[in-house]
Amino acid sequence: MIDGGRPHMDAVVKSLSARLAPANADKKSATKSLITKPSREEAEAAVRTLIEWCGDDPGREGLLDTPRRVVKAFEELYRGYGEAPEEQLERVFEEVSGYSDIVLVRNIEFYSHCEHHMVPFVGKAHIAYYPDGGVVGLSKLARVVDSYARRLQTQEALTAQVLETIVNGLKPRGAAVMIEAEHMCMSMRGVRKHGASTITTQFSGVFKSDPSEQARFMTLVRDYR
């Protein structure tokens, strides 16, 4: 295979290993240590290595700019690591003319990547809450979903993170989150079951303590699509 002028793999591995293992740190503290972000050049070198591992030549014309394009795409696909979802809920509107019933935003489309295989899973999120003193701009709920989705994720963790952020940010009387998604790690590989969907839910407050509120939430999500 053509080397294409990339750094020798041993040097790349050595450089990354040095950052991943803090000196004089025990195993517990090492786990909590922050990892220094590799340079763009190192990221592109890693892509070239993967291309070679797949059996192709990163030096051929069609693949010359692929490492650069992949790294640029990763910046967009995983931009959630540079965002603070909780900031989306900082502004609350209290002038709602006494409204205190359920607020529901359905069919929030999202795109994420499975942390186990780094392949996409796509779907929709449904969010409801009972306000307690104020409401938030509806688009902000979608932004919270997107900020967490644009990371390496599991659907279960994504569901819990969205709910926790809403509970901490809005202090509602109750909140509910349902996420339904199709995972390409099931459709494209492994069991290869196209069309299989996964549903996860998380509840707090009145939604957690009152089954009738859960039923109302499910009905609103399902019956008015």
Rank of each mutant, 00 (worst) to 15 (best):
A25F: 09
A25V: 11
K27L: 15
K28M: 13
S29C: 01
S29V: 12
A30G: 14
A30K: 12
T31C: 06
K32Y: 05
K32T: 12
K32M: 14
L34P: 00
L34G: 12
I35S: 06
P38R: 07
R40A: 08
E41M: 01
E41F: 00
E42K: 09
E42W: 03
A43R: 15
A43Y: 11
A43D: 06
A43C: 13
E44A: 11
A45R: 02
A46I: 15
A46E: 02
T49R: 12
L50C: 09
L50S: 06
L50M: 10
I51A: 01
C54F: 14
C54P: 00
G55A: 05
D56F: 15
P58W: 00
P58Q: 03
R60Q: 09
R60E: 06
E61F: 10
G62T: 02
G62M: 03
L63P: 13
L63G: 10
L63F: 15
T66F: 08
T66E: 09
R68A: 15
V70M: 06
V71K: 08
A73P: 13
L77K: 10
R79E: 10
E83L: 15
E83S: 11
A84Q: 14
A84T: 13
A84G: 01
P85N: 02
P85A: 01
E86K: 02
E86S: 11
Q88F: 13
Q88S: 08
L89D: 00
E90P: 01
V92D: 01
V92H: 02
V92Y: 02
V92M: 03
E95W: 04
E95Q: 14
V96P: 02
S97M: 12
G98T: 14
G98E: 13
G98N: 08
G98R: 10
Y99E: 09
S100K: 12
I102P: 00
I102N: 00
L104M: 06
F110N: 01
F110W: 02
Y111A: 12
Y111H: 08
S112G: 03
C114E: 02
C114I: 04
E115Q: 13
E115F: 10
H117Y: 11
H117D: 05
H117P: 05
M118A: 11
M118G: 00
P120M: 08
V122N: 09
G123A: 05
K124F: 10
A125L: 11
A125N: 04
H126W: 04
H126L: 07
I127V: 14
A128Q: 04
Y129W: 07
Y129V: 12
Y129D: 04
G134W: 15
V136K: 14
G137R: 03
G137T: 07
L138S: 09
S139I: 13
S139V: 06
K140L: 03
L141A: 12
A142Y: 08
R143T: 14
V144D: 02
V144G: 06
V145K: 00
V145C: 05
D146F: 07
D146V: 11
Y148G: 05
L152I: 09
L152Q: 02
Q153R: 12
T154F: 08
T154Q: 04
Q155S: 07
E156D: 09
A157Y: 04
T159Y: 13
A160M: 06
A160Q: 11
A160N: 08
Q161D: 09
V162P: 06
V162L: 10
L163A: 02
T165I: 05
T165Q: 07
